[in-house]
């Protein structure tokens, strides 16, 4: 009797239930994301050093971007990083999902292996890479040596350091991989079987059935990945390359951290964070527009 007591007293409508269930999340979003975001935007227009009260300085922070070489370098690095890493990550997630979307114990293990790097704590992940890429006794250089190839100090040469950070980020594509896997499993087997009966080969089935059905997921994933990458590789990059050599792996999140906490320019750092927000919002808007257009085209078909 006692167990069912509360339930008998409270019969909320479906709508109320929805609202109640969503409430914690919405509150969280409001308190932890929207409020800080609004505060960041406002602080972006101030001169604030964390010690004394913020003072309005209008657009001075934004103007400072034009003369701030470190900012420009970080922005440039981040932009290049996105251009190279995002296509690789999305393609990687798709290819791995296609390869591993099968039953069997071995495939289960392989799927888990793909996901694991994503959930390793960042510091541990960075330390593992430091060992792998160590010029003297790292696995990579020892393997190269076995073939008579002289290894290089990967993390201290600008080009290879950048490439290494991309590769580290590439291995953390677990979430995208899961998303692609789910999308693949939603494609009806019948449709594929019918196509096979009609004489479509593997490639044709992929090209004309699977890929079109995956487009919404691919779009979603790409946009999400751009936003994520813009803010990602913070700890890993910091611990492996230490922003170097010569600032070649110095990305916007590092820059914002240094300005805010190392140099106490919180107002200016807020303005730069606001820039990241605006770009991210623009990307989300692009995502919505692209999805709409895609579905309209589909309806026309």
């Amino acid at each position: 009797m006692r167990r069912s007591f509360p339930l008998r007293l409270f019969h909320p409508s479906y709508r109320t239930q929805l609202v109640l269930l969503l409430l914690p999340f919405l509150l969280g979003v409001f308190v932890l994301i929207l409020l800080p975001m609004a505060a960041t935007f406002l602080l972006g227009f101030t001169d604030y050093d964390l010690f004394t009260a913020p003072r309005w300085n209008n657009f001075a922070n934004f103007g400072h971007w034009l003369v701030d070489q470190l900012f420009q370098r970080a922005l440039y690095n981040s932009a290049w990083f996105i251009l190279i890493a995002v296509p690789l990550r999305v393609t990687g997630a798709l290819v791995l999902a296609l390869l591993l979307n099968r039953s069997g114990r071995a495939f289960g293990f392989a799927r888990a292996s793909v996901y694991v790097p994503t959930i390793i704590p960042e510091v541990a992940y960075a330390l593992v890479w430091l060992l792998i890429l160590n010029p003297g006794f790292g696995v990579v250089n020892l393997a190269l040596q076995a073939f008579g190839i002289q290894g290089v100090p990967w993390l201290t040469i600008p080009f290879t350091a950048r490439a290494s950070v991309v590769v580290m980020w590439l291995f953390q594509l677990g979430e995208g991989f899961i998303l692609m896997l789910a999308a693949l499993q939603m494609i009806s087997h019948e449709m594929l079987e019918n196509a096979a009966v009609d004489g479509a080969n593997r490639w044709q089935r992929f090209r004309h059935i699977v890929l079109p059905l995956l487009v919404p997921t691919l779009l979603l994933l790409s946009f999400r990945d751009i936003a994520l990458t813009f803010q990602g590789v913070f700890v890993t990059g910091l611990l492996t390359t230490e922003n170097g050599p010569y600032y070649t792996t110095y990305f916007l999140p590092h820059y914002i951290f240094d300005e805010a906490f190392g140099l106490f320019r919180y107002g200016y750092a807020s303005a730069t964070t606001a820039l990241v927000y605006v770009v991210t919002l623009a990307i989300v808007a692009g995502q919505v527009l692209a999805m709409r257009r895609w579905f309209r085209l589909e309806e026309l078909d």
Binding site: N134, G136, V152, P153, T156, I157
Partner: peptide
């Protein structure tokens, strides 16, 4: 050297 420094 740079490589040796990165090694240890």
């Amino acid at each position: 050297s740079k490589a040796d420094e990165a090694t240890e």
